[in-house]
Simulated scan of single mutants.
Amino acid sequence: MVPYIQTILAVQESHLTDELAANINTAFETKLSIFHSPLPETRNTAGVAFVINKALLNAEKITFEEIIPGRAILAKIRWHGNTTIKILNIYAPNDTANNEAFWEKLRDLTSRKPEWKPDVLLGDFNVVEDSLDRLPCHPDNASAVAALGELKSHLNLIDGWRRTHPDKREYSHTQSSNTSQSRIDRIYISNDLLAPASDWKIDPPLIETDHWLVSANITTPEAPEIGRGRWQIPTYLLENEDVMSELNVLGKKTLYNIEANKYRRTDTTNPQTIYAKFKTDLVRTCRTHAKIIHPTITNKIAKLKEKLIKETTTNY
């Protein structure tokens, strides 16, 4: 499972050694930076890691702390202005007793060290709070769920995806042995960050894995409001033969008019006004086609997602 927050990926079951992590950091030193925490005395189990996109974030201004080796690491990130955001990446034990003890230990640690309290808690929880998050539906161990609930209350965090989709059923993990499914991969967030957060998603990854991608776009409440920006031609229009044919004709007509009026320039007819009209006509043409093509693409994507969900639940 690899949830991400903007330019940050949080990885669980990373199975990284210090040597392998160093090799990756060296090979991609201009593009990304990895901080990882392996489970002591093991190589092929557990482990958590953060992957930082150095093209979009200054990795040198991020500090990391191992809270529980191989199970929980904390990233403190300089955010907007002088504010920081703290993200706790966890990989909870699968065993019920150890799972319960894990939440209790995190609560104890964050009580003794308030500076470790995160704004965002994410990862593979290996437990769900509601039977709605399992297929077939069934409740998880009450003691483990209660321990997680106490930690959430202590940290003042809420399940952002469930709050955004209160009645929706989607799953992030498929059990290979019996094809049962669950939403054990989640992102918890503080109340202050919930309002400006958006794009809560569970999507299939580009690589073959039994976990899907859980993601959200989280913005600081103190950030200035940013509008939609300038309109851009959708890339799918540039691959449409009808659209490109019309734009080609429009471009040739513009070049002809510029050449024809080269020596009889007026205030209303000159290369600048002709080119300005070309841009206006080009945008109008693209917008007209986009209104026709975009709904078709959106409906196709929605049907494919619906088909995918149905196929993953056919056994039930």
Rank of each mutant, 00 (worst) to 15 (best):
L155A: 08
K253I: 07
S182N: 04
I184P: 02
L155D: 05
K152W: 02
Y188V: 01
S176I: 12
N248H: 14
L193V: 03
D199N: 03
Y256R: 12
G229W: 00
T268V: 11
P234E: 08
S198V: 00
R186G: 01
D159N: 07
N217C: 08
K152M: 09
E241R: 15
T266S: 08
L255Y: 08
S182D: 02
G251K: 12
S245D: 14
T174I: 15
Y256W: 10
D203Y: 13
S177T: 14
Y188E: 01
Q232C: 02
N261H: 14
D267W: 13
P196M: 00
R163D: 12
Q232F: 04
K252S: 11
R264K: 15
S198I: 00
E222L: 15
E222D: 14
L247Q: 01
Y263S: 12
I189N: 00
T164I: 03
Y256S: 09
H173P: 01
T235P: 03
V214M: 11
P205R: 06
D167K: 13
K152L: 11
T220V: 02
P196N: 02
L255T: 12
Y236T: 11
N178K: 11
E241G: 05
R228M: 03
H211S: 09
S245K: 14
I207V: 11
A197I: 07
P221N: 06
P166K: 12
R265E: 11
I233M: 06
P205Y: 05
E225M: 09
